[in-house]
């Protein structure tokens, strides 16, 4: 029987809160502060669940954005090069042999480069559409991440729980799009 990550984190948190923290010399302010922060981190982690589910959804969303941008006319040489780079990154992002995080990083870097190049010499269409789509994508991605990290305490109470959010997003996509 394999103990779940949630069970293991719950035991760690209890040990920290009930045994380790009370044993720390209160005069050691850094140790007290850091033990509390570790406890906070574990609480955030224990509420998040399967990170791979979120990674699959984020990757699919970034691939959508890349496909839409690749359909646009480039404009000058910087934008043409950035679009070619994005096409390569999109192809790499489908390579199941690479780690999901590495595929996302390559794709996001190419998207970031395109946003810059479009400003330098992009066609009117590329400039306007990359702005509109990029902003909409950033908004949706930030909103998902805010739910994911809400327990860190930088947010007011989120409108939706993590499982509800993941379920809703997964239902909106085809299963084959979410394979990592």
């Amino acid at each position: 029987m394999t103990p779940s990550a949630a069970d293991r984190m719950a035991t760690m948190m209890r040990a920290l809160a009930e045994v380790v923290l009370p044993a720390i010399d209160p005069a050691n302010s850094l140790a007290v502060e850091q033990a509390r922060l570790v406890l906070g981190h574990l609480a955030v982690l224990s509420g998040q669940g399967d990170e791979a589910r979120l990674d699959a959804l984020e990757l699919a969303s970034e691939q959508d954005l890349a496909r839409q941008l690749l359909a646009l006319p480039a404009g000058g040489p910087l934008s043409a090069a950035a679009l070619a780079n994005l096409a390569t990154a999109l192809a790499q992002s489908a390579d199941g042999l690479l780690a999901a995080s590495a595929r996302r990083t390559v794709l996001r870097r190419a998207l970031e480069e395109l946003m810059r190049a479009a400003s330098d010499d992009g066609s009117d269409s590329l400039r306007a559409t990359s702005w509109r789509l990029g902003l909409a994508h950033a908004r949706a991605q930030a909103d998902r991440a805010r739910v994911w990290y809400a327990a860190a305490g930088f947010e007011s109470e989120p409108q939706i729980s993590i499982p509800e959010m993941l379920n809703a997003l997964e239902q909106a996509r085809r299963p084959e799009e979410l394979r990592l």
Binding site: L30, Q34, L37, V38, H41, V44, A138, A142, A152, F154
Partner: peptide
């Protein structure tokens, strides 16, 4: 850093700021 654990916690706030950035850019575009 002496505060690695705090810094990694702070990094989670980046998404809240990113959402605020979207608000501001939408307002000013």
């Amino acid at each position: 850093s002496h505060q690695d654990v705090l810094l990694s916690l702070l990094s989670m706030a980046a998404h809240r700021f990113a959402a605020e950035l979207c608000d501001l850019l939408e307002r000013g575009a």
